[in-house]
């Protein structure tokens, strides 16, 4: 078997493993049997391993870094989203219920790549053969994967927050006032409130329900997005350096540049909203979801439908 073949077999295997892990994760959400969760995790880790093999083998087949076209970006994105969720969300933040949704995102990403931009491993075009593009792309995919995890967590937050509100409305204790802008009693009043404060009405996480508490989802979403933001910023800067070298201008408002700027601005808006009285909680979450949609447009629509210097999907 040559490397190209290994890569393609590992790619197919990855999809199946992710799909299996996804089904197991959702089954865990339904019945909450710890054995199911552990099995799902094991299958997902096997999928991550297969995904990694697929990426590395592709690099060996083409004799270059394996992130040179849309198909390859998607493979790396799926890898980072699943691995990132396992390490950051399930591992560090101890939220066990996001993994199924992250796997769903990864399966969709891989399926779209296989359907719409399959390309055999091949060398890069001269324009893409630069030191900076490698850095730029790594940062952009890493940032994207983290924004995606944050986006998924935020969508789930909105769903959960709504159901918690409903539960409160029908007989629970009266909701606390919105905390937006609240400052702790013992903190000097000229300081801004903590962006990590969820600023949502539910006073105490309630047990039960399919998802973790809204407050926990909100916190993990904020942390992941705050982590992604500097990485994305760096990706945009590295892209500018590359554009300067390749095209003689660091910024030209081409569609890809414009949309990465839009995505950046929306997430900057999100970070501000987290520190703005009255914008915490649901409003900030809506901004993050808009940012997530903008990210998907940056990633897919620009490459597929809007032409620009960046449209090298066939490269």
């Amino acid at each position: 078997m040559n490397w190209a073949r290994i890569s393609s077999v590992a790619f197919d295997l990855t999809i199946w493993l992710y799909l299996g892990a996804m089904v197991l994760s959702f089954a865990y959400l339904a019945v909450r049997a710890e054995a199911l969760r552990v099995t799902a995790l094991a299958v997902a880790i096997a999928g991550v391993a297969a995904n990694l093999v697929s990426i590395v083998a592709r690099g060996l087949a083409a004799d270059r870094v394996p992130w040179g076209n849309m198909f390859e970006y998607s493979t790396v994105l799926a890898f980072l989203v699943v691995a990132g969720t396992i390490v950051l969300v399930e591992g560090a933040a101890k939220i066990k219920t996001l993994t199924g949704f992250a796997l769903m995102f990864a399966v969709l990403t891989l399926a779209i790549a296989a359907m719409f931009f399959p390309v055999a491993p091949s060398p890069l075009q001269p324009a893409l053969n630069s030191y900076w593009i490698k850095i730029h792309v790594v940062a952009a995919i890493t940032g994207s994967s983290l924004f995606a995890i944050g986006g998924i967590a935020t969508i789930l937050f909105l769903v959960k927050d709504r159901s918690e509100r409903r539960a409160l409305a029908s007989g629970g204790p009266p909701p606390a006032p919105i905390m937006g802008g609240a400052v702790e009693l013992d903190a000097p009043h000229d300081l801004l409130s903590d962006p990590e404060d969820p600023g949502i009405s539910t006073p105490e996480p309630k047990r039960g329900g399919v998802l973790p508490s809204a407050a926990a989802l909100d916190r993990v979403a904020y942390r992941v997005i705050a982590f992604a933001f500097p990485i994305w910023t760096f990706a945009v800067i590295a892209g500018g350096i590359w554009a300067q070298e390749a095209w003689g201008r660091y910024w030209g408002w081409d569609p890809k540049e414009t949309w990465s700027f839009v995505t950046w601005t929306i997430f900057a808006g999100y970070l501000h909203a987290r520190s703005t009285a009255g914008w915490k909680g649901r409003r900030a979450a809506v901004i993050a979801v808009v940012g997530f949609v903008s990210l998907l447009i940056t990633y897919y629509a620009v490459n597929l439908w809007i032409v620009g210097l960046h449209s090298y999907k066939l490269g």
């Binding site: 408002w253 569609p255 414009t258 601005t265 929306i266 808006g269």
Partner: peptide
């Protein structure tokens, strides 16, 4: 951001 979207 909305203005930039129009531009694209």
């Amino acid at each position: 951001a909305a203005g930039a979207v129009i531009g694209s």
